[in-house]
Design a protein around this nucleic acid. Sequence first.
DNA 1: GAGACGTGGTC
DNA 2: TGACCAAGTCT
Length: 335
Amino acid sequence: MLEDRERFSQTLASWFKHEGRQDLPWRTTRDPYAILVSEVMLQQTQVVTVLSRGYYTNWLEKFPDVATLAAAKEEEVLKMWEGLGYYSRARNLQKAAQAVIENHDGIFPTSPEEVRALPGVGRYTAGAVCCFALGLPEPIVDANVARVLARLMDFHQPVDSTSGIKQLWEWATECVPETDSYHYNSGLMELGQRICKPKAPDCGICPVKNWCTCDSPEKLPIKKERRKTIHRDEHSLYAVSEGKILLHREPERRRQGLWRLPERTSNEIAGLPLAAKMKYSITHYRVTLHVYEITGAKAREDEAWHSLESLASLPMPSPYRRALETVQESFLLQP
DNA sequence: GAGACGTGGTC
DNA sequence: TGACCAAGTCT
């Protein structure tokens, strides 16, 4: 156990006040809705990615409050999320907004239990919203905090196992201070992000190195074995006719609402000219995507013709967006 | 409780 | 190139 938790918490909070990044857009607001948006965007996603194409500020410009988001079209919502991945986050965010309208009279809930009950809000996000927006002394454990705590406590069990997760949340709960939890929790995360990094941690400048009990930080945290990468081929169509392109709308719940190039079996594309070939990764798959040019394709279930002008406004996973660009560029080069 | 879910960056 | 990683949640 950390001997003097209060001094530890104060040291970290103080470090954040002086050294923490204050320029991040979600650190200039206490609006629970805006904080929720940032936390959901940042789930399994790095800060630079969210900042890169202005996802956060664009989102708040388009959906400035819960009511606007709740009333938006799902396709618009997904379009604003395009390129961020894990698209169920966007759908759940809209469902959460609708839940606030329907179940809380449009007023964002202020208890951890009610926040936790919103769609797409797990233990981490609930704690983060309650702490960063409402100032409550709620614990949080994300990948950064897990790594920092595992090293501080020289924790040699997998941090992604049930018992490991339980232990980390206990530590986090014990350490969060009653006052100034905002700066403490922010400091804990930012420490993991900037100093207590996965590789080559800068222990020399760590503000809480005096509390750290591990001697090989680069070996922690321990994680369960990863799934092996599986290679597979994907054959898709670039079917254009009379200014329209054939696209497939994902019917499955997880990817619902996103448009992609229609897929065909290797038998069905036999003999068609290859228009583009590229690789992309998705979770543990490494996919080689082949795109074939075809005229006179027939739309199947969940497939529809879209005007080429409307293409840009449709929500589409990044690999297909990139594939389309590649194909169309090659057509421009040799008309 | 394991597996699914995206993407872009780093080494 | 490929493996690893990231402000996790849901089923």
